[in-house]
Structures are given as C-alpha cells and as structure tokens.
Simulated scan of single mutants.
Amino acid sequence: MIDERALLEALNSTPVRDGRRQDLWADDAALRRWAQAHGGPGADAAADWLRTARDLLQSATRGTAPETDLQRVLTGACRLPEIGESGLRWRLTAPPERMLAVELVLAWYDVRERRPGRLRPCGNDECRLFLLDRSRGNTARWCSMRTCGNRLKARRHHERARQAPAP
C-alpha cells in the first residue's frame, strides 16, 4: 500500500548527487524491491508504469499537472465498497500491471486534498527532492535543513558579506 512515506520515496527517487541527477529506479532490481516492499508485483510492465507515474507526479508537484497522462494511468481503476465484520471498506481494483502506479497517483491526490500546499519541491533550485511540510505554520522550504537549508543560508550569507562595504 502506498502511504505518504512511500509517496515521498517515489517522488524523491531522482536525487541530485555531486551535481548530477540520479535515478534510483533506473535499476530494475531496485525498483522491483521497492515495489514488492509496498505490496506490488515485481513484473517489468509494473515497473514501467511506476516510472511513468513517478515522472508524471514529479511534474505535477512542480506545477504542471499532465491530467490526460495521469488519467491514462488511472484508466480501468475502480474502488468498490465491501461490507464486512469491521464495517465498510473500499477495495481498489485495477489492471495488475498498473495497480501500484494507480495507488501512487491516488496517494498523491489524497495528500494534495488532505494537506493542500504542503507537498512541494525543495526550495533549493539545484535539488530535485520534494518535501511534505508538516510544520504548524506551513513554512518548511527545504527537503532537509542539514543539507539544502544550511547550504542556501551559507551561500546567502557569503553573498551579503561580499556586497557589504568595507569598514
């Protein structure tokens, strides 16, 4: 099942390291392990759909929502109500090769609805990571204060120091 943590793992699977963009899901075995850890199959077709959904959601989180492409991922998906001993439960159905990709897209929409404006890209333009701001004031700007936050604050401090007139 895809929850907020798994959604962030997926969105953050293309980090920048040493100035170069990495794709942690480029390795089929690594993606299969991630998919299986979240209840999905390890099939190649499922991996292709997961990569597609991840790329679309990264674009959508940055502001360009490719609605027709997202709809293509969701085509054939349906939530069916089931009544059991524990009450009403919604069962998701989708083509097996797209099930985890569908769950990923639905998790993204759920976060956007429940926490509007809190899922966003890191404020460091050189970073490709995303954050889910859980702060009370919705003021988090960086994926990590230790890395991006400190780096940008130090850069701004050095720029101000260079621009300051000498005594």
Score class of each variant (00 low, 15 high):
Tyr109Arg: 10
Arg17Met: 08
Arg136Met: 00
Asn12Arg: 07
Ala45Leu: 02
Asp23Tyr: 04
Gln163Tyr: 00
Leu57Glu: 03
Leu100Thr: 14
Arg79Tyr: 13
Ala154Asn: 05
Asp125Ala: 15
Pro121Leu: 01
Arg115Gln: 14
Val73Gln: 04
Ser59Ala: 13
Leu88Val: 15
Ser86Lys: 12
Leu88Lys: 12
Gly76Tyr: 03
Pro165Asn: 02
Leu11Phe: 05
Gly137His: 09
Glu85Asn: 07
Leu88Arg: 15
Gln36Pro: 02
Cys148Ile: 03
Met145Ala: 12
Pro165Arg: 00
Arg155Gln: 13
Arg5Gln: 12
Ala26Met: 04
Pro41Ile: 06
Asp55Asn: 04
Met1Asp: 07
Ala161Pro: 00
Arg98Lys: 15
Ser59Thr: 01
Leu7Pro: 09
Thr61Trp: 10
His38Lys: 09
Lys153Glu: 07
Val105Phe: 10
Arg156Trp: 03
Gly149Leu: 01
Ala35Asn: 10
Gly40Ile: 02
Arg115Pro: 04
Ser135Gly: 03
Ala107Ser: 09
Thr139Cys: 00
Tyr109His: 11
Glu9Cys: 05
Ala43Leu: 13
Met99Leu: 15
Arg120His: 15
Leu57Gln: 00
Leu80Ile: 13
Ala53Cys: 08
Thr93Gln: 15
Arg79Phe: 14
Pro41Glu: 14
Asp3Ser: 10
Thr64Phe: 11
Gln71Leu: 15
Leu131Ser: 06
Arg54Val: 01
Thr139Tyr: 08
Leu70Tyr: 07
Arg155Ala: 15
Gly87Phe: 12
Leu24Cys: 13
Ala94Glu: 04
Ala26Lys: 08
Ala107Glu: 13
Pro95Ser: 02
Leu80Tyr: 14
Met1Val: 06
Pro121His: 05
Glu126Asp: 13
Ile2Val: 15
Asp18Ala: 14
Leu131Trp: 14
Ala101Ile: 02
Val16Met: 07
Ala45Lys: 07
Gly117Ala: 10
Pro165Gly: 01
Pro95Glu: 07
Asp125Glu: 12
Gln58His: 02
Ala10Ile: 12
Leu80Cys: 06
Pro66Val: 07
Asn12Trp: 11
Arg54Tyr: 03
Arg33Pro: 01
Gln163Ala: 07
Asn124Glu: 08
Gly76Asp: 08
Cys127Arg: 04
Leu88Cys: 11
Asp48Cys: 05
Gly123Thr: 05
Gly76Trp: 04
Pro121Trp: 04
Asp110Glu: 15
Cys127Ala: 09
Val16Ile: 12
Arg5Asp: 11
Pro167Lys: 00
Arg17Thr: 11
Ala45Tyr: 00
Cys143Pro: 06
Met1Ser: 14
Arg54Phe: 06
Cys78Asp: 14
Thr64Trp: 11
Ala53Ile: 07
Trp25Pro: 00
Thr61Ser: 14
Asp69Leu: 14
Leu8Gly: 08
Arg141Gln: 12
Val105Cys: 11
Arg98Tyr: 07
Trp90His: 13
Ala166Ser: 06
Pro41Ser: 15
Arg118Phe: 09
Asp28Pro: 09
Asp28Ile: 06
Cys143Asn: 05
Trp90Asp: 07
Arg5Cys: 06
Asp110Leu: 10
Gln163Arg: 04
Arg128Thr: 13
Arg146Thr: 09
Glu4Trp: 00
Glu126Gln: 12
Arg79Pro: 05
Ala164His: 00
Asp69Ser: 14
Arg91Pro: 09
Ala26Val: 03
Val102Asn: 01
Gly63Tyr: 11
Thr93Gly: 05
Pro15Gln: 09
Arg162Asn: 00
Val111Leu: 06
Arg20Met: 05
Leu56Thr: 03
Ala101Asp: 02
Asp55Val: 05
Trp142Ala: 08
